[in-house]
Simulated scan of single mutants.
Amino acid sequence: MLKHEYLENPCRAASIPYWKTACIAIPDNTKIVHDSEFDTELLKRYQDEPYFRLRHPMLEVEPVSLPEGYSLQEASVPDFVEHINSCYDDIGITVPEMQRNMLREQYSSELWLAVKEDCRGKIVATGIAELDREIGEGVLEWIQVSKDYRRCGLGSYLVSELLWRMRKAAKFVTVSGKCNNPDYPEGLYRKCGFCGNDVWHILREREQTAFAE
Protein backbone atom coordinates (compact mmCIF):
# COMPACT_ATOMS: atom_id res chain seq x y z
CA MET A 1 0.00 0.00 0.00
CA LEU A 2 1.26 3.44 -0.91
CA LYS A 3 1.70 5.94 1.88
CA HIS A 4 -0.48 8.64 0.34
CA GLU A 5 -3.31 6.13 -0.22
CA TYR A 6 -3.27 5.21 3.43
CA LEU A 7 -3.10 8.79 4.66
CA GLU A 8 -6.17 9.82 2.65
CA ASN A 9 -8.37 7.69 4.92
CA PRO A 10 -6.37 5.41 7.25
CA CYS A 11 -9.27 3.52 8.84
CA ARG A 12 -10.88 2.83 5.48
CA ALA A 13 -7.64 2.04 3.65
CA ALA A 14 -6.48 -0.78 5.92
CA SER A 15 -7.59 -2.84 8.88
CA ILE A 16 -4.22 -2.35 10.59
CA PRO A 17 -1.75 0.54 11.07
CA TYR A 18 0.33 1.54 8.06
CA TRP A 19 3.64 0.17 9.31
CA LYS A 20 2.08 -3.25 9.91
CA THR A 21 0.80 -3.54 6.34
CA ALA A 22 4.35 -4.17 5.17
CA CYS A 23 5.26 -6.86 7.69
CA ILE A 24 2.13 -8.86 8.55
CA ALA A 25 1.02 -11.71 6.29
CA ILE A 26 -2.62 -12.82 6.29
CA PRO A 27 -2.97 -16.60 6.90
CA ASP A 28 -4.31 -18.69 4.01
CA ASN A 29 -7.49 -19.56 5.94
CA THR A 30 -8.31 -15.91 6.68
CA LYS A 31 -9.93 -13.08 4.73
CA ILE A 32 -10.19 -9.46 5.87
CA VAL A 33 -12.85 -7.31 4.27
CA HIS A 34 -14.23 -3.86 4.95
CA ASP A 35 -17.88 -3.66 5.93
CA SER A 36 -18.72 -1.96 2.63
CA GLU A 37 -17.60 -5.15 0.83
CA PHE A 38 -18.98 -7.65 3.32
CA ASP A 39 -21.52 -10.18 2.03
CA THR A 40 -23.46 -12.47 4.37
CA GLU A 41 -22.86 -15.29 1.88
CA LEU A 42 -19.33 -15.38 3.26
CA LEU A 43 -20.72 -16.74 6.54
CA LYS A 44 -21.38 -20.08 4.87
CA ARG A 45 -17.65 -20.64 4.68
CA TYR A 46 -16.21 -18.29 7.30
CA GLN A 47 -16.64 -17.37 10.93
CA ASP A 48 -16.86 -13.60 11.33
CA GLU A 49 -15.33 -11.34 13.99
CA PRO A 50 -16.04 -7.66 13.24
CA TYR A 51 -13.62 -4.99 14.49
CA PHE A 52 -14.21 -1.25 14.69
CA ARG A 53 -11.38 1.06 13.65
CA LEU A 54 -11.40 4.66 14.85
CA ARG A 55 -9.24 7.74 14.38
CA HIS A 56 -8.37 10.67 16.63
CA PRO A 57 -7.52 13.83 14.63
CA MET A 58 -5.33 15.26 17.45
CA LEU A 59 -6.81 18.73 16.99
CA GLU A 60 -7.75 19.14 20.64
CA VAL A 61 -5.73 17.25 23.24
CA GLU A 62 -5.76 18.29 26.86
CA PRO A 63 -3.61 17.23 29.85
CA VAL A 64 -5.32 14.91 32.32
CA SER A 65 -4.89 13.84 35.94
CA LEU A 66 -5.27 10.45 37.55
CA PRO A 67 -8.28 9.87 39.80
CA GLU A 68 -7.47 10.32 43.49
CA GLY A 69 -5.93 7.26 45.09
CA TYR A 70 -3.98 6.14 42.04
CA SER A 71 -0.54 6.89 40.63
CA LEU A 72 1.76 5.90 37.81
CA GLN A 73 4.27 3.17 38.57
CA GLU A 74 7.33 1.89 36.75
CA ALA A 75 6.62 -1.66 35.67
CA SER A 76 8.62 -4.49 34.13
CA VAL A 77 7.64 -6.42 31.03
CA PRO A 78 6.44 -9.37 33.18
CA ASP A 79 4.29 -6.90 35.15
CA PHE A 80 2.62 -5.70 31.96
CA VAL A 81 2.14 -9.25 30.69
CA GLU A 82 0.62 -10.42 33.96
CA HIS A 83 -1.83 -7.54 34.06
CA ILE A 84 -2.83 -7.75 30.40
CA ASN A 85 -3.50 -11.48 30.64
CA SER A 86 -5.54 -11.02 33.81
CA CYS A 87 -7.93 -8.69 31.98
CA TYR A 88 -8.90 -11.08 29.18
CA ASP A 89 -10.46 -14.51 28.93
CA ASP A 90 -9.59 -15.05 25.26
CA ILE A 91 -6.22 -13.34 24.87
CA GLY A 92 -2.83 -14.40 26.14
CA ILE A 93 0.53 -12.73 25.51
CA THR A 94 3.97 -13.87 26.59
CA VAL A 95 6.98 -12.04 27.95
CA PRO A 96 9.10 -12.81 24.84
CA GLU A 97 6.36 -11.41 22.61
CA MET A 98 6.26 -8.16 24.57
CA GLN A 99 10.03 -7.94 24.60
CA ARG A 100 10.05 -8.22 20.80
CA ASN A 101 7.63 -5.31 20.65
CA MET A 102 10.25 -3.21 22.40
CA LEU A 103 12.64 -3.77 19.49
CA ARG A 104 10.31 -2.11 16.98
CA GLU A 105 11.09 1.34 15.61
CA GLN A 106 7.63 2.36 16.83
CA TYR A 107 8.47 1.59 20.47
CA SER A 108 8.71 4.37 23.04
CA SER A 109 9.18 3.75 26.76
CA GLU A 110 7.11 6.88 27.48
CA LEU A 111 4.10 5.17 25.91
CA TRP A 112 4.03 2.23 28.32
CA LEU A 113 1.89 3.22 31.31
CA ALA A 114 1.08 1.29 34.47
CA VAL A 115 -1.32 2.62 37.12
CA LYS A 116 -1.30 1.34 40.69
CA GLU A 117 -3.83 1.68 43.47
CA ASP A 118 -1.94 3.56 46.18
CA CYS A 119 -3.50 1.84 49.19
CA ARG A 120 -2.71 -1.65 47.94
CA GLY A 121 0.29 -0.94 45.76
CA LYS A 122 -0.91 -3.22 42.96
CA ILE A 123 -1.20 -2.51 39.25
CA VAL A 124 -4.85 -2.09 38.26
CA ALA A 125 -4.57 -0.52 34.79
CA THR A 126 -2.07 -0.55 31.92
CA GLY A 127 -1.84 1.08 28.52
CA ILE A 128 0.60 0.79 25.64
CA ALA A 129 0.83 2.87 22.46
CA GLU A 130 3.21 2.91 19.52
CA LEU A 131 4.32 5.79 17.33
CA ASP A 132 5.13 5.60 13.63
CA ARG A 133 7.18 8.74 13.17
CA GLU A 134 7.53 8.14 9.42
CA ILE A 135 3.92 9.11 8.78
CA GLY A 136 2.97 10.59 12.15
CA GLU A 137 0.58 7.84 13.21
CA GLY A 138 0.07 6.96 16.85
CA VAL A 139 -1.52 3.61 17.64
CA LEU A 140 -3.21 2.52 20.85
CA GLU A 141 -2.26 -1.13 21.20
CA TRP A 142 -3.21 -2.24 24.72
CA ILE A 143 -5.66 -0.46 27.01
CA GLN A 144 -6.97 -2.49 29.94
CA VAL A 145 -8.32 -1.97 33.44
CA SER A 146 -8.74 -4.71 36.03
CA LYS A 147 -12.35 -5.86 36.31
CA ASP A 148 -12.98 -4.51 39.81
CA TYR A 149 -11.60 -1.06 38.88
CA ARG A 150 -13.62 -0.30 35.78
CA ARG A 151 -15.93 2.73 35.59
CA CYS A 152 -13.51 4.65 37.83
CA GLY A 153 -12.00 6.84 35.13
CA LEU A 154 -8.81 4.83 34.70
CA GLY A 155 -9.49 3.83 31.08
CA SER A 156 -10.19 7.43 30.09
CA TYR A 157 -7.03 8.51 31.87
CA LEU A 158 -4.85 5.98 30.01
CA VAL A 159 -6.22 6.94 26.60
CA SER A 160 -6.06 10.69 27.24
CA GLU A 161 -2.59 10.55 28.78
CA LEU A 162 -1.22 8.57 25.84
CA LEU A 163 -2.74 11.07 23.42
CA TRP A 164 -1.14 13.90 25.38
CA ARG A 165 2.26 12.22 25.26
CA MET A 166 2.00 11.75 21.48
CA ARG A 167 0.63 15.21 20.70
CA LYS A 168 3.89 16.67 19.34
CA ALA A 169 4.75 13.77 17.04
CA ALA A 170 1.42 12.22 16.03
CA LYS A 171 -0.73 13.84 13.35
CA PHE A 172 -3.45 11.31 14.11
CA VAL A 173 -3.96 8.25 16.32
CA THR A 174 -5.81 5.05 15.47
CA VAL A 175 -7.32 2.29 17.56
CA SER A 176 -9.30 -0.87 16.91
CA GLY A 177 -11.20 -3.45 18.91
CA LYS A 178 -13.89 -6.09 18.77
CA CYS A 179 -17.33 -4.71 17.96
CA ASN A 180 -18.99 -7.42 20.03
CA ASN A 181 -16.91 -6.92 23.18
CA PRO A 182 -19.44 -6.81 26.06
CA ASP A 183 -17.31 -4.19 27.83
CA TYR A 184 -17.92 -1.84 24.85
CA PRO A 185 -14.41 -0.33 24.51
CA GLU A 186 -15.60 1.63 21.48
CA GLY A 187 -17.61 3.85 23.81
CA LEU A 188 -14.48 4.69 25.81
CA TYR A 189 -12.54 5.72 22.72
CA ARG A 190 -15.37 7.86 21.36
CA LYS A 191 -15.67 9.54 24.74
CA CYS A 192 -11.98 10.44 24.42
CA GLY A 193 -12.39 12.05 21.00
CA PHE A 194 -12.03 9.17 18.53
CA CYS A 195 -14.41 9.12 15.60
CA GLY A 196 -15.32 7.20 12.45
CA ASN A 197 -17.58 4.37 11.33
CA ASP A 198 -15.21 1.88 9.72
CA VAL A 199 -15.70 -1.80 10.52
CA TRP A 200 -13.47 -4.61 9.31
CA HIS A 201 -14.52 -8.26 9.24
CA ILE A 202 -11.91 -10.87 10.16
CA LEU A 203 -13.16 -14.01 8.43
CA ARG A 204 -11.68 -17.38 9.35
CA GLU A 205 -12.57 -20.56 7.51
CA ARG A 206 -14.92 -22.87 9.33
CA GLU A 207 -13.66 -26.39 9.94
CA GLN A 208 -14.90 -28.68 7.24
CA THR A 209 -16.49 -31.90 8.42
CA ALA A 210 -15.49 -34.90 6.40
CA PHE A 211 -18.15 -37.54 5.78
CA ALA A 212 -17.18 -41.06 4.91
CA GLU A 213 -19.11 -42.52 1.98
Results as ranks from 00 to 15, higher is better:
residue 108 S to M: 02
residue 118 D to I: 10
residue 136 G to A: 13
residue 45 R to T: 14
residue 109 S to V: 05
residue 131 L to N: 13
residue 101 N to E: 10
residue 52 F to T: 06
residue 59 L to A: 10
residue 35 D to R: 07
residue 150 R to A: 08
residue 74 E to W: 01
residue 88 Y to N: 04
residue 115 V to R: 00
residue 121 G to L: 06
residue 69 G to C: 01
residue 101 N to M: 11
residue 93 I to F: 02
residue 49 E to R: 15
residue 96 P to I: 06
residue 70 Y to S: 00
residue 103 L to K: 14
residue 93 I to E: 08
residue 153 G to F: 02
residue 112 W to L: 02
residue 92 G to W: 14
residue 150 R to M: 08
residue 93 I to Y: 04
residue 61 V to N: 05
residue 70 Y to M: 00
residue 62 E to Q: 09
residue 56 H to D: 07
residue 75 A to L: 06
residue 64 V to H: 05
residue 138 G to S: 14
residue 122 K to H: 15
residue 43 L to Q: 06
residue 62 E to L: 10
residue 116 K to I: 03
residue 45 R to C: 07
residue 59 L to T: 08
residue 85 N to L: 01
residue 79 D to R: 05
residue 126 T to A: 14
residue 121 G to H: 10
residue 49 E to N: 13
residue 124 V to F: 04
residue 75 A to Q: 05
residue 55 R to V: 13
residue 73 Q to A: 01
residue 68 E to Q: 11
residue 151 R to F: 10
residue 124 V to T: 02
residue 37 E to H: 10
residue 116 K to H: 05
residue 150 R to D: 12
residue 141 E to I: 15
residue 114 A to V: 00
residue 101 N to Q: 14
residue 139 V to G: 06
residue 117 E to Y: 04
residue 98 M to F: 11
residue 42 L to A: 04
residue 141 E to C: 12
residue 89 D to W: 06
residue 120 R to K: 15
residue 132 D to Q: 13
residue 100 R to G: 12
residue 84 I to E: 09
residue 136 G to C: 11
residue 47 Q to A: 13
residue 79 D to V: 03
residue 86 S to W: 00
residue 75 A to R: 00
residue 96 P to H: 09
residue 144 Q to Y: 11
residue 113 L to S: 02
residue 67 P to E: 03
residue 95 V to P: 10
residue 68 E to R: 04
residue 136 G to Y: 04
residue 115 V to P: 01
residue 55 R to A: 14
residue 148 D to Q: 11
residue 97 E to C: 01
residue 135 I to Y: 14
residue 153 G to D: 04
residue 142 W to C: 09
residue 66 L to H: 02
residue 142 W to S: 08
residue 130 E to W: 12
residue 134 E to P: 12
residue 102 M to D: 02
residue 106 Q to G: 01
residue 103 L to A: 10
residue 139 V to Q: 15
residue 83 H to Y: 03
residue 96 P to T: 06
residue 91 I to G: 03
residue 47 Q to R: 14
residue 119 C to L: 11
residue 36 S to Y: 07
residue 91 I to C: 07
residue 61 V to E: 03
residue 82 E to I: 00
residue 101 N to P: 05
residue 56 H to Y: 07
residue 126 T to D: 13
residue 48 D to Q: 07
residue 97 E to R: 12
residue 48 D to E: 13
residue 102 M to R: 13
residue 111 L to R: 02
residue 96 P to L: 03
residue 77 V to N: 07
residue 99 Q to P: 00
residue 53 R to E: 04
residue 118 D to Q: 12
residue 103 L to R: 10
residue 48 D to G: 04
residue 58 M to Q: 07
residue 109 S to Y: 00
residue 99 Q to Y: 04
residue 43 L to F: 02
residue 133 R to G: 15
residue 134 E to G: 12
residue 133 R to S: 15
residue 133 R to N: 15
residue 55 R to N: 07
residue 146 S to C: 09
residue 149 Y to V: 00
